[in-house]
Amino acid sequence: MAIASADTAIRSSSFSRVLIYLVLLLFALFYLLPFGIMLVNSLKPLEEITGGNMVSLPREWTIAPWLSAWSTAQIGVEPTGLRPYFINSIVMAVPAVALSTIVGALNGYVLTKWQFRGATLIFGLLLFSCFIPFQIVLIPMARILGILDIAGTTTGLILVHFVYGIGFTTLYFRNYYAAFPTELVRAAQIDGAGFFQIFWRIMLPSSGPIIAVSCIWQFTNIWNDFLFGASFASGGSAPMTVALNNLVNSSTGVREYNVHFAGAIMAAAPTLLVYIVAGRYFVRGLMAGSVKG
């Protein structure tokens, strides 16, 4: 039935379909254009760019700008390239994503399956934390990092991102677990499983899609963050985004646009990769949460 009607629907409106695809293609090209130009220019010698030739393909292909951006370019005052900062970002993002996802999952589990007095209020407050702008937490956060004596370190940044992410991850997991059958938890209780055993053996194995959502969301936000990175991590512990800014703003000599483009692509690559690898789980997880919840 469904196939037959879809069939006729296609035939009766094949013209408008072609039109839709054309428009979509146009939009896709439009959005890909900047990326394309960045890529092309990162593979050119600097003279070709300064010679006023931004859009055309390189006459002479080279990966020198990439090598320079990665290991020798001037970042601020040190000629280290972006590599140490890329590592900083990884060291910051991976634990922060993991911690906030695990805590979000635990929160969601407790809020839906171990209902206690005031659970709704606490969830409301956590939800509210999603709407607090970055700028508002800057000063209190700086104070706390100071007290903990981790100001200006990657550890400090991990803490900031972890805490700031809990609101979002809790929201995801709470909505996902609200649709998770409570009878399963009760059955496990009768079977003698404890709080963490139920979480570990029953809940988590069924949470694949929402874990993907939480990880992608958190990774993208943490990796791309500039404000917290610029505010709480200085010099050698700065994340990639801050280093990229320093690369572009290093004012010695000529502006090496090709190196800047290569660096920018490097900074964007991990989030792109995450979307390509886990993107379909992202969509599936969002659907699961919204349709059932």
Binding site: P181, E183, L184, R186, A187, A188, I190, R201, I202, S206
Partner: peptide, 10 residues
């Protein structure tokens, strides 16, 4: 206990 939805661990 046997539950209405069976509650088998998926």
């Amino acid at each position: 206990m046997v539950f209405q939805s069976y509650a088998l661990y998926p």
